[in-house]
Design a binder for these strands. Structure first.
Lengths: 121, 121
DNA sequence: CAGTATCCTTCGCGATACTG
DNA sequence: CAGTATCGCGAAGGATACTG
């Protein structure tokens, strides 16, 4: 299991990691897990995201083949975002990470407090 | 399985996600997977990281209880970084993500090329 | 060897306002 | 409703040089 090449900055895996590293992308994937969502739904689900950033994120993810954007010719306009198979396959490992986060956030916060207390004391 | 709270900006899970979102942290965890490493070893393994950023990353991870820093009173000085149990437990879900990245980077790049071609054409 | 110090760029992101 | 346009800042990250 050679993974030295993984650390090469020019390795395309880094590209993927950069995308995943974007917390908004992660939250979008999680938000779309249960099915298609509209723009406003996503914005409401994901606290603190501005329309601009959400749009950027969605466009980038569409470009990477993680989701599809479907516009309905209606009034008022409606746009639905849906995970592709690729996007859905990403959801699994991502879920593993967020599960870890939920289970271990206390441990992290405790370690942080302890560390800070020692530093202050 | 309520995960609506997960999207609250004030949710501590976001904190963890921010740390994981840092690509350097991810690479450090992966680098330490096989055992303790020295500062220079890490810097060499992880391409493109500057000492400053690596130090920042290591300090933050130490603070969060993900790794320990051990200084040996030798000349020349030696410092070893080791994953804690918490850090090791994080390695698993992270590995899942990077595995996904390795397996699907081609699909992502293809989607990207296709998208860009259409846009240009 | 294992960092620290300093400077500087850039650019992600937020706030706000406007539109098809 | 689903965005786009514009402005601006603050902080992360890079390059470089120096030190215990």
């Amino acid at each position: 299991m050679q993974q030295g090449d993984f650390f090469d900055p020019s390795c395309p895996t880094r590209v993927v990691l950069d995308r995943i590293g974007d917390k908004w992308s992660v939250l979008v994937v999680l938000s779309l897990h249960r099915g298609p969502r509209r723009f406003t739904e996503l914005r409401d689900m994901i606290g603190g995201v501005t329309p601009k950033v959400l749009t950027q994120t969605l466009r980038a993810m569409e470009r990477d083949g993680l989701l599809t954007r479907k516009v309905f010719a209606e009034v008022p306009p409606r746009v639905e975002y849906t995970l592709t198979e690729l996007g859905q396959s990403l959801q699994e490992p991502l879920q593993a990470v967020t599960d870890w986060a939920e289970h271990n956030v206390n441990a992290v916060m405790s370690a942080r407090d302890l560390h800070d207390t020692r530093a202050t004391a």
